[in-house]
Design a protein around this nucleic acid. Structure first.
Lengths: 213, 213
DNA sequence: CCATTCATTACACTTGGTGTAACAGTACAC
DNA sequence: GTGTACTGTTACACCAAGTGTAATGAATGG
């Protein structure tokens, strides 16, 4: 009963999975999501179509196979934050650190389409993106409920989670927009920092006074 | 150049649309979403498959063809609220009024599956649901941005919108759970009212103190 | 070396969804 | 009324995503 530890079989399986994902994403970024069929991907990776679907339940999963990382980071911001730091402040730090994704937001010759270009140009990928956000919200809500000792069904943890994820998304979106508009990195970072402060200031004070008269 | 006003053609088109939607939903609720093919729906409605897809771009849209109502109600809670009422309070009222959906949450002999049973049992319908929520959030964010006179790209309206929609969803979810657990209507309504107060109290005061130590 | 496990494969099949050109009933002008 | 433009519907051919199944062959463990 071999575990998922480093057997040769396991190794090859992971290689195949990585090969398929890499091949697929290269094709997607070169030509667009809809313009590449799964048959093509399979052929390019020298693998059967069935194998592709054995590793990735849907074509969209080929694009989002790294989503677990984001989920883990968001969860860690709650469960592994320094003692004494509030959840809100911990998430603020997470949002500030988003600037580290700036390089990946820029297109280059090798990647004529960014990951985001793929998603924004395709409804089914957008749906998948929402599904990912939804999942993160759920995981976060569970962690919050556990920490707060909330009764099962308590809506509060869910709402806090949904607000945090919503803030994260809106700030990410704003950052992307700033990157698109161009300008030096320091300028973008300064503006982003200001955005984060405004947002978390609002969340900290409460929404009752929004919009300011 | 006839407008979409009451010509005979328009009338028949609407009838066909309604017939298709009704036929489809009856079949879905009787046997489940995946267990009914579009070909079947078309046959049952005595219409061609192509006509079904002319009226509803995807099979999922057959289930959610009333989503616009919810969108309109949420939007109205912002744009058509009484003068002097804050957005937060207006949305609180909207959430309180959710109890009017309680009857529809119960199954009966005619409807062995509730609308929610359909959605909760099917990933693609859940994705569609998220898409609807996403759309409402966007519409709401635009309305908030307009009212606040926010600069284009300002993340605040979006975050407020996402929080409000998140609250609405969490409270709806909680209400559904209470209905499932059973009990007299007045009891459910009282509990729901308390939930709403707790949630909007938190949103009004700010999230900084969550969870309470 | 043998037996078992399991990732992969070929293949046939279902179903959601599209494109197109023809058809049929409505609208409207004369 | 009669002809004509319009447009919702249809039949039909087609594409691509995804599934089920039985067979193959390499990895594994004794």
């Amino acid at each position: 009963m071999p575990m998922s530890a480093g057997g040769l079989r396991e190794l090859k399986k992971n290689r195949t999975r990585q090969l398929i994902a890499d091949t697929a994403n290269a094709l997607f970024r070169a030509r667009g999501f809809d313009e590449v069929t799964v048959d093509e991907i399979a052929a390019a990776a020298q693998v059967s179509k069935k194998t592709v679907f054995n590793h990735f339940p849907t074509k969209e999963d080929l694009v989002f196979y790294r989503a677990e990382d984001r989920e883990a980071m968001s969860l860690a911001a709650v469960t592994e934050r320094p003692a004494g730091l509030s959840i809100l402040d911990s998430f603020r730090a997470l949002c500030l650190a988003q600037t580290r994704f700036v390089p990946g937001m820029r297109r280059d010759l090798v990647h004529p389409r960014s990951f985001f270009d793929l998603v924004s140009g395709n409804p089914s990928l957008q749906r998948k993106m929402h599904e990912v956000n939804e999942r993160i919200t759920r995981v976060l809500a569970d962690a919050l409920a556990a920490e707060a000792g909330a009764e099962p069904g308590d809506p509060l943890p869910r709402i806090v989670a949904s607000t945090l994820v919503g803030a994260q998304r809106a700030l990410y979106r704003r950052l992307r927009q700033r990157v698109r508009e161009g300008g030096p990195d320091e300028e973008i970072e300064r503006a982003h920092r200001a955005d984060v402060e405004r947002v978390f200031d609002l969340l900290g004070r409460g929404l009752g006074g929004y919009p300011p008269a």
